[in-house]
């Protein structure tokens, strides 16, 4: 079963899951009480005046992780077709993947040496 029709049950599952989420969110919105006032609607209402909002800058390291993730995840995805056809490709395929892994590791080593993954500095 490799046809598009094998995805049909997933469409049905999407409808069920989406319908459930939508229904429950609407229902709880209507069921609960709603009493609004200015102090209560403030963010993180704890008795202390809050300082500005949360649209602030945060550590560059999180962006670095995200960018490295995109790079490495693309490389990981390239392994999947190889893994599926592993038995047909034989020894030659193994040599090719060794070459690919060494490129992968050179990049990884460079990232490590540059200190992109040093979180405590």
């Amino acid at each position: 079963m490799n046809t598009t029709s094998s995805y049909f049950p997933i469409v049905m599952q999407t409808l069920v899951a989406g319908g459930f989420v939508g229904l429950v969110l609407t229902l709880t919105h209507l069921l609960g009480p709603s009493r609004k006032n200015k102090t209560k609607d403030a963010n993180f209402e704890c008795g202390v005046e809050s300082d500005g909002d949360a649209r602030v800058r945060f550590s560059i390291k999180y962006f670095m992780t995200a960018i490295l993730f995109v790079l490495f995840d693309v490389e990981v995805i390239f392994f999947y077709p190889y893994a599926v056809n592993f038995k047909e490709l034989g020894g030659e395929g193994f040599l090719a993947v060794l070459m690919f892994v060494s490129f992968f590791l050179i990049g990884f080593f460079y990232v490590l040496k540059k200190g992109a993954l040093e979180w405590d500095k």
Binding site: L27, T28, G32, S34, R35, K38, D41, A42, N43
Partner: peptide, 18 residues
């Protein structure tokens, strides 16, 4: 959970919050 107040902070991005 069903009968509690469905609170949305005033300063939040409402649709994304939901």
């Amino acid at each position: 959970m069903f009968f509690k107040e469905d609170f949305i902070p005033a300063a939040s991005a409402k649709w994304l919050f939901i």
